[in-house]
Structures are given as C-alpha cells and as structure tokens.
Design a protein around this nucleic acid. Structure first.
Length: 259
DNA sequence: ATGTCCTTACCTTAAGGA
C-alpha cells in the first residue's frame, strides 16, 4: 500500500497539479493539508472520478485536511481531541481497509510563528494534545501512521541552512523537544529510517529563490507505530513536483507498506 | 530572512497567514 502526505497550499490553486501528481504517482491513500476550503466547496468529483473516496475536514480560508483513498475507509473522525474550544481544522483520522486495517491520522500541525507569543503557545499545546492522542492509539498495538505537515524541522540535518531557522518556531528547542517526546512513544520517522543521509527536503519557500538555491527544509513526515514500521519497505520524497507547473511550496512524501 | 503565493474582503488593492 502506497500512502502519501501532501500539503497542497489550497485546493483551488492546485486543481491541476494535484490530479496530475495523483495520476503519475498512483498512491492508494493520500493525506492532504491546507485544503483552504469548506467541505461543501471541495471538488470531490474530480477525485472520485479517479477512483478515490474523499473525506474532508475543512474550514474557510485557512487550514483544512482531507484523506483520499482508493481503499474503503471506516471510522472517520475529525478534529484533534483535548480542547473543545479549538475550531481549527487540522486533524482527521480513518481506518484504511487494506488486507489488514491500518489507522491513518492526517495532521496539519500549527506553524507557531512568531515565537514567542500566543501562536507559539497554541503550537506547543497542540503538540501536547497530539502526544496524548498518539499514546492512546499506540496502546492498541495496531498498524498506525501519523502523517502530515508537522511544521517541525527535527534536526539541523533536515535544513539546507539550519542557521536561518534558529529563532523560528519550526526549529526552536521547545518545538524539537516536543517532537522528540512524540517519537519517544515508539514512533519511526519513515523517511529518515530509509534515507539516513542529510540533504532531503519537503518544503522550499516561494520567496528569495529558495527552490533554485535548494534552500529547503524537511517538515512533512510519516511517523509509524511499531506495527506499521514492521511493514515499511520504502519511503520517498517526490522532489520533482516542486519544479512543476504552479507548484505548492511543499512536495509529496510517501511510504510503501507491505500490507 | 524575504526576491512569493494563496485566500478573503470594505474587491483595480490590502491584509493575514505561511
């Protein structure tokens, strides 16, 4: 099963690039972030025609996540537990009915800039809530994948120019500590596990010629439960998508699971 | 670290977010 994560930075703006990548890459399941659309406005027919089931958790203008799947989905839930007052659409879960069921969580972790400040407080609070949710899911000891835009550069090796990010919410020590704490629950960073060398990125800013200079960062991750990690055969970044027509500032990251 | 992009709205232009 090929499972991908892709921050598309707006479904309306990516209405051509996303189907083009789906047709070329043929993932079985894709978690999308930043759909920037309410559920009713999401162009689901385009993807249904391509053989995908479509589950969205959107909001107006900002954020919004979705799962596209060629396999049946069960028990779809929306929203990250732990704060009834949080109205930002950043979390969706579904059980993908592969040969063996696999729980997939699609997430768009808050950016947190500027830090310090209320946005950074929200980021750290959100990460604590995610850790609680991950802990509960991991206790089930089933194949589970947490994939999405984490807005965290885990290590200096995940940035072309780490010195540019030292005061940024994506790389501050507290952000990295919260990410490490999540990993310490027993998760495997799929891409890093299969590609230990530095120099692989999933995001290049639109500004200042970041793509042309390969000034990238790796912030889109698929974290695997032990039972999912046992199934991992391959993990890749579709870097060339960033050079395509009207690209997102992120590119797809995907894994193959032997399931 | 800002040479851009996306979305919305008091919509031929600015703002907020990233």
């Amino acid at each position: 099963m090929k499972l991908a994560t892709f921050n598309i930075n707006g479904i309306k703006a990516r209405i051509e690039a996303l189907p083009a990548w789906l047709a070329a890459a043929s993932p079985d399941v894709v978690c999308l972030q930043e759909i920037k659309s309410v559920d009713q406005a999401f162009p689901r027919e385009i993807f249904e025609t391509m053989g995908y089931r479509v589950e969205t958790h959107g909001q107006k203008s900002f954020n919004g996540v979705a799962i596209l799947s060629k396999l049946p989905l069960e028990d779809v839930t929306r929203g990250l537990p732990g704060d009834e007052a949080d109205e930002q659409a950043r979390w969706i879960e579904a059980t993908v009915m592969a040969h063996r069921p696999i729980r997939v969580c699609g997430l768009y972790l808050p950016n947190g800039n500027p830090a310090p400040g209320p946005k950074y407080d929200y980021k750290l609070g959100w990460m604590a809530r995610m850790e609680a949710r991950a802990r509960a899911l991991l206790a089930l000891e089933e194949p589970t994948v947490f994939c999405g835009d984490y807005n965290v550069i885990p290590q200096d090796a995940d940035a072309a120019r780490p010195e540019l990010w030292t005061t940024d919410a994506l790389a501050l020590p507290a952000s990295r500590a919260a990410f490490r704490q999540l990993m310490a629950l027993g998760l495997t960073d799929a891409f890093r596990a299969r590609n230990p060398a530095p120099g692989h990125y999933s995001f290049w800013d639109y500004q200042a010629g970041a793509w042309e200079r390969n000034n990238g960062i790796r912030i889109d991750h698929l974290l695997l439960s032990p039972q999912a990690a046992d199934l991992l055969t391959e993990a890749q970044i579709d870097k060339q998508v960033r050079a395509g027509d009207k690209p997102s500032d992120h590119v797809p990251v995907w894994v193959n699971l032997d399931i």
